[in-house]
Amino acid sequence: NIFRILGDLSHLASIVILLRTVQKTQRVDGISLKTQILYVLVFCTRYLDLLTFRWKSVYNTLMKMVFIGASVRVIQLIQGCKIQNPVAYKDMIFRDTLQIKYLVGPCAVLALIFNYKFTLLELCWSFSLWLESVAILPQLFMLSRSGKASTLTTHYIFALGLYRALYIPNWIWRYYSEDRLEKLSVFTGLLQTALYSDFFYIYYKKVVKGAGFELP
């Protein structure tokens, strides 16, 4: 359905925006390396079903591979800036202070509690959902501490938040048309969108209506 495709596309757009800008400018300021590492972890744990070869469709398989590949490429590019632009890189690391273990740990526990089946694949899948819902936190934390963000960062976060927001009508759609309700996806998806909502509001006020981006 349309919401899902638009959601996937905006997800893809967010990664492309990030990839292209980092590649072109060799700048990493405002981007949280920790958030990007978490996304690699999210994709790798979620798309483990690629290894079972029970592929759903060409689109599905291709997108999964693209997401894993692109997220790894982002890390590579950021690491590249370490040599190209060491001052900006160090500054980014210095401001990227939210500890990953406080996110990964609780997500692992939540995955053990909330899952459909106690198998490795299902546990990893559930873990990836929980982790995705909070993976943006290091990035948002960084933003809120610095109070300023480059347009790149804001567009990136916007596209990423839009993707999860679009998945919500997708779930409503699927609930009525397919009698399908994936409770874990819906709950973690709502949680994730909620984390973005504050950001959306500020984005709308500052970026859409002109003027720079500043957090209170």
């Binding site: 979620r46 079903d49 999964k64 459909y116 996806s185």
Partner: peptide
């Protein structure tokens, strides 16, 4: 409503 085990979303 079923809770499917097939995860077909991205």
């Amino acid at each position: 409503t079923s809770t499917p085990l097939e995860h077909d979303e991205l």
